[in-house]
Design a protein around this nucleic acid. Sequence first.
RNA 1: UGGGGCGUCGUCAAACUGGUAAGACACAGGACUUUGGAUCCUGCAUUUGGAGGUUCGAAUCCUCCCGCCCCAGCCA
Length: 566
Amino acid sequence: MNDNIPAETDSTAGIDFVRAIVERDIRDGKHGGRVHTRFPPEPNGYLHIGHAKAICLDFGIASEYGGKCNLRFDDTNPSKESVEYTESIKQDIRWLGFDWEDRLFYASDYFGRLYECAEQLVRLGRAFVCDLGPDELRDYRGTLTQPGRESPWRNRTVEENLDLFRRMRAGEFPDGSRTLRAKIGMDSPNICMRDPVIYRILRAPHHRTGTDWCIYPMYDFTHCLSDSIEGITHSFCTLEFEDNRVLYDWILDQLGVHHPQQIEFARLNLTYTVMSKRKLLQLVEEARVSGWDDPRMPTLCGLRRRGYTPEAIRSFSKRVGIAKRDSVVDISLLEHTLREHLNAVAPRAMAVLHPVRLVIENYPEELEEELDYVINPEDPSAGTRKVPFSREIYVDADDFRENPPKGYHRLSPGAEVRLRYAYLVRCTGFTTNPDTGQIEQILCSYDPDSRGGDAPDGRKVRGTLHWVSARHAFEADVRLYDRLFTRENPMDRSDGRVFTDHLNPESLQVLRGCMLEPHLKSTAPGDRFQFERTGYFCADSVDSRPGHPVFNLTVPLKDRWARRNP
RNA sequence: UGGGGCGUCGUCAAACUGGUAAGACACAGGACUUUGGAUCCUGCAUUUGGAGGUUCGAAUCCUCCCGCCCCAGCCA
């Protein structure tokens, strides 16, 4: 993994509780001091930044402690899963920078062994076939405060259960007519333990096993055994599975097999976005966004298209930490790690998003110059390139004010500014459109002795503007993105509104006719730049065409001036 | 009102078996600057949900209380 991020030495702090457990286990020689984790996504949707936290934990801990991490698809519900999702998940994990090497597994690989385990449980007298339908089952389960009732089918003989379970597998019974249940007890205060269903009849073609099976194991049964089969030592999952841990342990204990330790941590929440697959799916289906990879989505494919780097996401994951407290991380932390990385690696370029023509009246009509441009001041090894200059250029409309506010050190009548890496120019006048009153053209004179931007006499020039030579510029579309929601917590229903009511109508703004440096014309999709004084941008991977890149705003530069002068 | 978890700065998050509240983001000042970027300084919890108690000493131990999250899919 080649991080171009300055060493993350900010962690003088203690390690998180998960790593503390792993280290203690290594010290104690548990599992022979071995560390083996797994990332177990269900292929029923796209990965998002919350999954990135889990991936960084699972793969991160394995690599930190000399262990391994498997990728295992938890594909036990064929009605919701597909190969499309498995492919996107693999791509996203690789993009994030992690490698499962030859350890790509599917829970469906274990269907045969899982079935054997289920029969074993039956033989042990620890599972039975139950004929209760879904409604009855719910009724028998009891409530949070009242214990459940035992199924009337609970005391079938081992032989009968075995026979029935085999016939379930053979397809003799209709979907939903019977289940295989663990025989634990109906009076547990933990509802997970009230004779939970471990196999159901479901005639749905599976994306890997086709129609081989008409019964599928449930999560609780599958997960612990898959972990066990793979020799996992530490099984990390999110908080909502805490109650399930008892069942995880119970099943493994009954079968007397290798017993990994499940450890739960808090999932990631971010301000100004939603993180559930269901909500994200809704945004896609209702066309509130252009798709799973819309650059405003918190999906990994969305962030990638937006211009986020894997390094930034990994750094972010490290900084949010791992704990058990429900929390909501400020999106500005993610933006910070992004800027931190991009600042270090992104080549600079000049792009004028809201162009206004500026004429340097004393600059020779036909003259063209090639000026030296520093590619990245943060990285001298990036070197320099040439940028063309001429009498007429474009500057940003926001860089000129007829009546400048206090503290404004850009262009205004009489004011002198520096054109980055070019010349010092002084504003001598301007013209406006008589109909609209809009600034049409800014007039300036330049100081020929200031080539490169240095004041020959050392005079102070506060403002430095980006610009692009009019006759060399090319037009392009640039999309400005902002947060998708206007609320820190879009799920806030205190005023009776739903999350889609909080969508930010200004989250996407398309700018046409932006004027860019000619050298940007050959940008390849996905290439990232810092447009000086504006922000970080990347060429869109979907809508760019050869010679016609379309740029996405990845994240704006911080702007203290704008902040103080709203 | 059952069970399982969790409550430390605006937001994350440290503080090993009690020893006198890290760090980061954000925010606010200032320095510097050919990006109002970056960088660099400075400030930012007399206090750990609350109330008692034990102790020379408590975020850490005890008691009671308050608040928040999760669980009643043949989803994961």
